[in-house]
Amino acid sequence: MTSLPLAASSDAAQSTLSALTPGTTATVIAVDVPGEVGERLMEMGMTRGTRVTLVRRGFLGDPLQVNLRGYMLTLRKAQARLIRVTA
Protein backbone atom coordinates (compact mmCIF):
# COMPACT_ATOMS: atom_id res chain seq x y z
CA MET A 1 0.00 0.00 0.00
CA THR A 2 2.50 2.58 1.11
CA SER A 3 5.63 1.06 -0.23
CA LEU A 4 7.52 4.27 -0.48
CA PRO A 5 10.99 3.97 -1.94
CA LEU A 6 13.33 5.87 0.35
CA ALA A 7 15.98 6.37 -2.24
CA ALA A 8 16.74 5.03 -5.67
CA SER A 9 19.32 2.59 -4.36
CA SER A 10 17.90 -0.50 -2.68
CA ASP A 11 19.53 -1.44 0.57
CA ALA A 12 21.00 -4.91 0.76
CA ALA A 13 20.33 -5.18 4.51
CA GLN A 14 16.54 -4.99 4.08
CA SER A 15 14.47 -7.15 6.35
CA THR A 16 11.14 -7.07 8.19
CA LEU A 17 10.42 -6.18 11.77
CA SER A 18 9.23 -9.72 12.50
CA ALA A 19 12.50 -11.19 11.23
CA LEU A 20 14.69 -9.22 13.63
CA THR A 21 16.55 -11.01 16.40
CA PRO A 22 15.30 -9.91 19.84
CA GLY A 23 17.57 -7.16 21.12
CA THR A 24 18.45 -5.72 17.71
CA THR A 25 17.48 -2.31 16.43
CA ALA A 26 16.59 -1.29 12.88
CA THR A 27 15.16 1.66 10.98
CA VAL A 28 11.67 1.54 9.49
CA ILE A 29 11.67 2.05 5.74
CA ALA A 30 8.05 1.23 4.92
CA VAL A 31 4.83 0.30 6.69
CA ASP A 32 2.99 -1.98 4.27
CA VAL A 33 0.29 -2.96 6.80
CA PRO A 34 -2.96 -2.21 4.98
CA GLY A 35 -5.96 -0.24 6.16
CA GLU A 36 -6.71 1.29 9.50
CA VAL A 37 -4.41 -1.08 11.36
CA GLY A 38 -1.48 0.32 9.41
CA GLU A 39 -2.63 3.87 10.06
CA ARG A 40 -2.96 3.12 13.76
CA LEU A 41 0.60 1.77 13.83
CA MET A 42 1.86 4.90 12.12
CA GLU A 43 -0.03 7.14 14.53
CA MET A 44 1.68 5.28 17.37
CA GLY A 45 4.95 6.51 15.88
CA MET A 46 5.88 3.69 13.49
CA THR A 47 6.82 5.97 10.61
CA ARG A 48 9.61 5.89 8.06
CA GLY A 49 12.97 6.64 9.61
CA THR A 50 11.96 5.57 13.15
CA ARG A 51 14.45 3.40 15.05
CA VAL A 52 12.70 0.28 16.35
CA THR A 53 14.07 -2.38 18.71
CA LEU A 54 12.51 -5.83 18.85
CA VAL A 55 12.43 -6.48 22.61
CA ARG A 56 10.92 -9.94 22.80
CA ARG A 57 8.51 -12.38 21.25
CA GLY A 58 5.51 -13.67 23.18
CA PHE A 59 4.52 -17.26 23.89
CA LEU A 60 5.20 -19.34 20.74
CA GLY A 61 6.60 -16.31 18.94
CA ASP A 62 3.54 -14.05 18.86
CA PRO A 63 2.74 -11.21 19.67
CA LEU A 64 5.86 -9.05 19.59
CA GLN A 65 7.08 -6.37 21.97
CA VAL A 66 9.00 -3.50 20.40
CA ASN A 67 10.57 -0.30 21.65
CA LEU A 68 10.20 2.84 19.58
CA ARG A 69 10.45 6.55 20.35
CA GLY A 70 11.22 5.66 23.97
CA TYR A 71 8.22 3.49 24.79
CA MET A 72 7.05 -0.13 24.53
CA LEU A 73 4.47 -1.24 21.99
CA THR A 74 2.94 -4.63 21.22
CA LEU A 75 1.87 -5.84 17.81
CA ARG A 76 1.23 -9.16 16.11
CA LYS A 77 3.59 -11.03 13.84
CA ALA A 78 1.09 -10.69 10.99
CA GLN A 79 1.60 -6.91 11.06
CA ALA A 80 5.31 -6.93 11.92
CA ARG A 81 5.90 -9.04 8.81
CA LEU A 82 4.62 -6.12 6.73
CA ILE A 83 6.93 -3.54 8.26
CA ARG A 84 10.13 -3.30 6.25
CA VAL A 85 13.26 -2.28 8.08
CA THR A 86 16.92 -1.81 7.37
CA ALA A 87 19.86 -2.11 9.70
Binding site: R40, M44, Y71, M72, T74, L75, R76
Partner: peptide, 11 residues
Protein backbone atom coordinates in the same frame (compact mmCIF):
# COMPACT_ATOMS: atom_id res chain seq x y z
CA UNK B 1 -11.39 -8.60 12.38
CA UNK B 2 -9.48 -9.89 15.40
CA UNK B 3 -8.44 -6.85 17.42
CA UNK B 4 -5.04 -5.80 16.04
CA UNK B 5 -3.40 -5.77 19.47
CA UNK B 6 -1.48 -2.59 18.93
CA UNK B 7 -1.13 -1.76 22.60
CA UNK B 8 1.21 0.30 24.69
CA UNK B 9 3.00 -1.54 27.50
CA UNK B 10 3.17 1.23 30.09
CA UNK B 11 6.03 1.37 32.61
Amino acid sequence: PPPPFIMELPT
